[in-house]
Simulated scan of single mutants.
Amino acid sequence: MQIRLDDLSGPEVAAFLEEHIQDMRSVSPPESRHALDLEALKAPSIRFWTMWQDDLLIGCGALKTLSHDHVELKSMRIRASHRGLGFATELLHFLLDQARWQGAERISLETGSMPFFASARALYRRHGFIDCAPFGAYKPDPNSVFMTRLVAKAQRTA
């Protein structure tokens, strides 16, 4: 398994992200869709990584800089066939390390409140994220759960 900084130019990445966007469209109402498309992920404030097993793209995740000490976790996804095998935990640890190395003191995220997102919320809570108020440009939304944690106190858990 390898995680690498990605320039979002590969066709595998485009297809993987399109599948992510389609999943979000299928479970979230239009006003509550916050997943970024391929072009939006190319913004200068975002760093994007992909996770590979041999030549198979199995995951991705991004960090968006909100301020000098606050980043947002974006577009974290694991291929359906690889969920429940520890890849999400490995990718999350990697992204927490990247946030720390970037100098962030806090990492926050938005995810859905629907049952579809229950396993994601459980993963984040297992790794120290707690519910919080909307941050950045987000507004209160019954379809969203906002979570945050300190990076400086990040500890790996099983």
Rank of each mutant, 00 (worst) to 15 (best):
I3N: 15
R4V: 15
R4C: 09
L5I: 05
L5V: 01
D6M: 08
D6W: 08
S9D: 09
G10R: 00
P11N: 13
P11R: 08
V13H: 11
A15S: 10
A15E: 14
F16K: 08
F16G: 14
F16H: 11
E18L: 07
E19R: 12
I21H: 02
I21S: 02
Q22K: 05
M24H: 02
M24R: 13
M24F: 09
R25K: 12
R25C: 03
S26F: 05
S26I: 03
V27T: 13
P29W: 03
P29H: 07
E31P: 04
S32L: 02
H34I: 10
E39I: 03
A40C: 05
L41V: 05
K42E: 12
K42H: 08
A43K: 12
P44E: 06
I46S: 10
R47P: 00
F48E: 01
F48A: 15
W49L: 08
T50Y: 00
T50I: 00
M51C: 08
Q53C: 06
Q53V: 13
L56Q: 15
C60H: 11
C60P: 07
K64F: 01
K64Y: 01
K64V: 04
T65G: 03
L66K: 05
S67R: 00
S67T: 15
V71H: 03
E72L: 01
E72G: 02
L73W: 06
L73I: 06
L73N: 12
S75P: 01
M76Q: 14
I78E: 09
R79I: 08
H82W: 06
H82D: 07
R83W: 05
L85M: 13
G86F: 10
F87L: 02
E90D: 11
E90M: 04
E90N: 12
L92T: 14
L95G: 00
L96M: 15
D97E: 10
A99F: 02
R100Y: 04
W101A: 04
Q102E: 13
A104F: 14
E105M: 07
E105G: 14
E105T: 08
R106Q: 10
R106K: 12
I107T: 01
I107Y: 09
L109M: 09
E110T: 05
E110Y: 11
T111F: 11
G112C: 10
M114W: 07
M114I: 09
P115L: 04
F116D: 05
A118N: 15
S119I: 01
A120N: 12
R121V: 12
A122N: 06
A122P: 08
A122T: 14
L123F: 15
Y124Q: 09
Y124V: 06
G128A: 09
F129E: 03
I130H: 07
P134G: 06
P134V: 15
F135H: 03
F135N: 06
G136H: 13
Y138N: 09
Y138K: 10
K139F: 08
P140L: 12
D141G: 06
S144N: 12
V145M: 10
M147W: 02
T148C: 09
R149E: 08
V151K: 04
V151E: 00
V151D: 01
K153I: 04
Q155R: 01
R156D: 08
A158Q: 09
A158G: 13
A158N: 12
A158W: 05
A158F: 04
